[in-house]
């Protein structure tokens, strides 16, 4: 396809041959991303439904389990992710403004926030592991308080199963998101994004906001309500 004329207002970016215009491609990509987000919601949703059902069935056990989590670390991570959502949104904003430097700054900050989130998560995980608070059948607490609670609630491991599954699946999404943002940074350095073409930034942005969205629910469910 040598139709340069069909890409008037997107200096440089050639849309795929089966779309009639770059505009159509942009909307299709966005719709595809939203559809992907729908699948993500339903996948995480299964976990949430399971969590809520068991939380209603064993409220005291879940409360006992939540006492092992430090809500301050959870709150810190909430703030980090919310801030990263802002910078992600701003990187799209600056792409719309044709400001390559600020696009890059915001993408780097977003990536850094992802790192901070994962480091805090790593601290939380290691502290759980060091107290023997493993998921499922490896659950083996060796701290008096935990042992006592374990005797009181023999199924206490289930709370940690949920904790590790939910945060683990969420954390893996953060890692994937960070990888995608790294890819955006690489492309932004080459100057590929501008007001006429920023579809990848927008789509990765949607994914990153979804990761934030899930954490918005995970934080109170795991750390606060218990």
């Amino acid at each position: 396809m040598s139709t340069v004329s069909s890409s008037q207002h997107n200096n440089g970016h050639h849309h795929a041959h089966h779309f009639e215009s770059a505009e159509a491609e942009y909307h299709a990509s966005k719709f595809g991303t939203w559809t992907f987000l729908v699948t993500e919601i339903l996948m995480f949703g299964g976990l949430f439904v399971g969590y809520i059902l068991y939380h209603e069935r064993y409220p005291q056990m879940f409360h006992a389990g939540s006492t092992f989590l430090d809500w301050r670390l959870g709150a810190l991570n909430t703030v980090v992710l919310l801030f990263s959502s802002l910078t992600m949104a701003l990187s799209i904003y600056y792409a719309q403004m044709n400001d390559k430097r600020k696009v890059l700054i915001n993408l780097y900050i977003t990536l850094a926030c992802g790192f901070v989130f994962m480091i805090v998560k790593a601290f939380e995980y290691t502290s759980k592991f060091s107290h023997g608070l493993f998921p499922g059948k490896y659950f083996n607490p060796h701290e008096p308080h935990a042992i006592q609670l374990h005797q009181q609630f023999p199924d206490l491991a289930q709370y940690f199963s949920f904790y590790f599954t939910m945060t683990g699946l969420h954390g893996s999404h953060v890692l994937v998101g960070m990888g995608l943002i790294g890819w955006l940074i690489y492309r932004a350095h080459k100057g590929e994004f501008h007001s006429g073409y920023y579809t990848p930034v927008e789509c990765v942005g949607l994914f990153w906001h979804l990761v934030d969205l899930i954490w918005i629910y995970l934080f109170p469910l795991l750390y606060l309500v218990g």
């Binding site: 399971g50 064993y58 056990m61 998921p135 059948k137 490896y138 491991a157 289930q158 199963s161």
Partner: peptide, 14 residues
């Protein structure tokens, strides 16, 4: 793999 006890009645699951 981990015996997370979500579906196993012996571990509080259903």
């Amino acid at each position: 793999l981990l015996g997370i006890g979500v579906f196993d009645p012996n571990l509080g699951g259903d």
